[in-house]
């Protein structure tokens, strides 16, 4: 459905994309993972025709999207990162407008508006003005506006930032349904549990380059790490800190991580008589976070996760 090849884009001296590729098949959900500034939004903007690349090609449903943007646009729905709706229009009017903008006739867009609203839990709010919606409802309407013309490629740029739990679940459910209906989906997020929940395939991007692609099990297998995490009072045994092939990292006042060829039983051996100082021990489980860390050498935007969690907490508190 989508084949973007060798995309290159520079903003002055900043190389936002440097030969990045992205392919998505019908029915496939691809999660574009990367830190802030990795090049995700630039890539989506180029595919959506909002930016011209310095080099590269974009083929959408067999159409050269750079040469025929208008034809390609009919196949594509994008919900940009910033929430954009018409606050003085009702939910229905917002949805119908974006349907009309895509060339849908009155009857089709009217029916489709109701269908999409229902899918995202906005059915009872169809005649409410955009400005009277809660943050989560606004976010859902923002997403719904990208779905209304039934695009064959849907691109959602961090669709759940600041969203409440209900909104997250409804958006994820809608994405799953769309993919099941055969749409190709590109989904960027910092929130890894969503990627797991979507069972999305991964494209990891950093510094404008695609560093890894594959299914979640494939990448987890490729970047399997072994080691233990534990909490222990006092100093660590010298034999452990100087153990060959072991990488010991302090993660908190009493919390440690040891990467390398070590399991829980071996850790106990290192502590010997001092095992009483151990409060907890767990094996390191490879997951998307560890994959991302292994591929990019960075964690995925801790700051964003904290802000996002805080925003969710605040909103849930307000609702309660």
């Amino acid at each position: 459905m989508l084949r973007a090849t060798d995309l290159t884009k520079a903003y002055g001296e900043v190389q936002a994309l440097n030969g990045a590729d992205l392919s998505v098949a019908p029915g496939q959900v691809v999660s574009l993972l990367g830190r802030n500034g990795a090049g995700k939004t630039t890539m989506l903007s180029i595919i959506a025709g909002l930016l011209r690349p310095d080099a590269g090609s974009v083929e959408l449903g067999g159409i050269d999207a750079l040469a025929k943007p208008e034809a390609a646009a009919k196949l594509l729905g994008i919900a940009p990162q910033d929430t954009g709706i018409y606050t003085v229009l009702t939910v229905r009017q917002n949805l119908e407008f974006f349907g009309e903008l895509s060339g849908m006739d009155r009857a089709t867009r009217s029916a489709r508006a109701v269908e999409v609203a229902d899918r995202l839990g906005l059915g009872p709010l169809l005649d409410r003005k955009g400005g009277q919606l809660s943050g989560g409802e606004t976010r859902r309407l923002h997403t719904a506006c990208a779905l209304v013309h039934a695009p064959r490629l849907l691109m959602l740029d961090e669709p759940t930032v600041g969203a409440d739990v209900t909104t997250r679940l409804q958006i994820i459910e809608a994405v799953r349904d769309l993919a099941a209906d055969g749409a190709a989906v590109v989904y960027t997020t910092h929130y890894l549990p969503e990627v797991v929940s979507l069972e999305a395939d991964l494209v990891i991007i950093d510094n404008g380059q695609v560093l890894a692609t594959g299914t979640q099990p494939e990448l987890i297998e490729q970047h399997r790490i072994s080691g233990v995490q534990f909490e222990a009072a006092g100093e660590l045994p010298d034999s452990l800190t100087s153990g060959q092939g072991l990488e010991v990292t302090r993660q908190g006042p009493d919390r440690w991580q040891v990467l390398g060829d070590i399991d829980m039983a071996q850790l106990l051996e290192y502590f010997g008589d001092g095992t009483a100082r151990l409060r907890s021990v767990e094996s390191l489980q490879p997951d998307l976070e560890t994959v991302f860390l292994a591929v990019t050498g960075n964690r995925i935007d801790d700051e964003s996760l904290d802000e996002e969690a805080a925003a969710t907490d605040i909103e849930e508190g307000a609702r309660a």
Binding site: L50, E70, A72, A73, L76, I78, D82, G84, Y86, S102
Partner: peptide, 13 residues
């Protein structure tokens, strides 16, 4: 309103 890019995404000239 951040809707400008959505209008542009229609690829209208």
């Amino acid at each position: 309103w951040k809707t400008w890019d959505r209008l542009r995404a229609s690829a209208a000239p």
